[in-house]
C-alpha cells in the first residue's frame, strides 16, 4: 500500500487501542509510483503530529521516514532508531506524555473523530492545489499560511469534537463541560451557542439555575 493512503484517523485509532509508537516508512520524494503519494503522506503525518502535540500526546510517537525497497540496512537503522526512541518515551499516557492515561484515551477518541471528519480530510486534500494553483479565489498559499489554517482547524475541531463526545454520553451544562474538558467556560458557552445555530445542539431542560444541553441527532 502507498503511504499516501495511510489514514490519519486510523493512526489515531491505533493509538487509542494502546500502541506506543507508529512508524510510517515511505519512498523517497520523486520515487513515488503514484507521483505525490509520499508528499501527501508526509503532509498527513505532519498534521497528525501537530494534533497529537495539541492534545498532549508526545508527537515523537508518530514518525514519517523514507527509504527505498533496496536499502535493507537503512530500513533496519530507521526501525531500530525508532524503537530506541519509543522505549525512551515509555508507555502511552505515562511520563513521556503531557496528558496521562486514562484522560489521553478520551482525547484520542475525539482526535479520531476530528481526523475522520470531513473538514480536516478536505483541507489536507487541498494542500497541493492551494500551494500550487490557489484556492477558489485564485489565492496561492504559502506553507506557513496553510499550516496556520490547519492549526486553527485542529484547535477548534478538537474542542468541538470533545464537547460533542461528552454530549453523546449524556446531556450536560456548560459548566460541566468546561470542568471536564479544561476549556474556559466562556469559550464552551460560545461553542454551544454556535452548535445551536447549526442545529446540532438544543436545550434539554433547566435544572435550578442551570440550562442543560443535548444533541439533536443532527450532527454531520
Amino acid at each position: 500500500m502507498c503511504t499516501g493512503r495511510v489514514d490519519p484517523a486510523l493512526v489515531a485509532k491505533a493509538f487509542k487501542k494502546g500502541i506506543d509508537g507508529l512508524l510510517v516508512v515511505g519512498c523517497y520524494f520523486g520515487d513515488c509510483h503514484y507521483i505525490t503519494g509520499n508528499h501527501q503522506a508526509k503532509a498527513k503525518m505532519d498534521m497528525t503530529r501537530k494534533l497529537f502535540k495539541f492534545i498532549g500526546l508526545n508527537e515523537e510517537r508518530l514518525a514519517f521516514r523514507q527509504c527505498s525497497s533496496g536499502e535493507a540496512s537503512v530500513f533496519v537503522e530507521i526501525v531500530s532508531e525508532f524503537d530506541q526512541k519509543i522505549r525512551s518515551i515509555g508507555p502511552l499516557g505515562g511520563d513521556g506524555d503531557r496528558v496521562k492515561a486514562p484522560e489521553i484515551f478520551k482525547k484520542l477518541e475525539a482526535a479520531e473523530a476530528v481526523l475522520a471528519g470531513e473538514k480536516i480530510r478536505w483541507i489536507i486534500g487541498k494542500r497541493t492545489p492551494f500551494l500550487e494553483t490557489g484556492n477558489v479565489y485564485g489565492e496561492i498559499f504559502t506553507e506557513h499560511e496553510f499550516n496556520r489554517a490547519i492549526e486553527m482547524i485542529i484547535v477548534e475541531e478538537m474542542e468541538v469534537q470533545e464537547i460533542l463526545a461528552r454530549l453523546k454520553e449524556t446531556a450536560r451544562s456548560v459548566k460541566d463541560l468546561a470542568n471536564d474538558l479544561a476549556i474556559p467556560p466562556s469559550r464552551v458557552f460560545r461553542y454551544i451557542t454556535a452548535l445551536k445555530r447549526k442545529g446540532m445542539v438544543a436545550l434539554d431542560k433547566v435544572t435550578g439555575q442551570t440550562p442543560i444541553f443535548q444533541l439533536t441527532g443532527q450532527e454531520v
Binding site: K175, F189, R190, I192, T193, Q209, T210, P211
Partner: peptide
C-alpha cells in the same frame, strides 16, 4: 438571539439570580 431569549451569563452559561 443566541439563547432563544433565555437570560444566561456568558461566563458559564448559568442563569443569574
Amino acid at each position: 438571539g443566541p439563547t432563544d431569549g433565555m437570560v444566561v451569563s456568558p461566563l458559564d452559561g448559568e442563569i443569574p439570580k
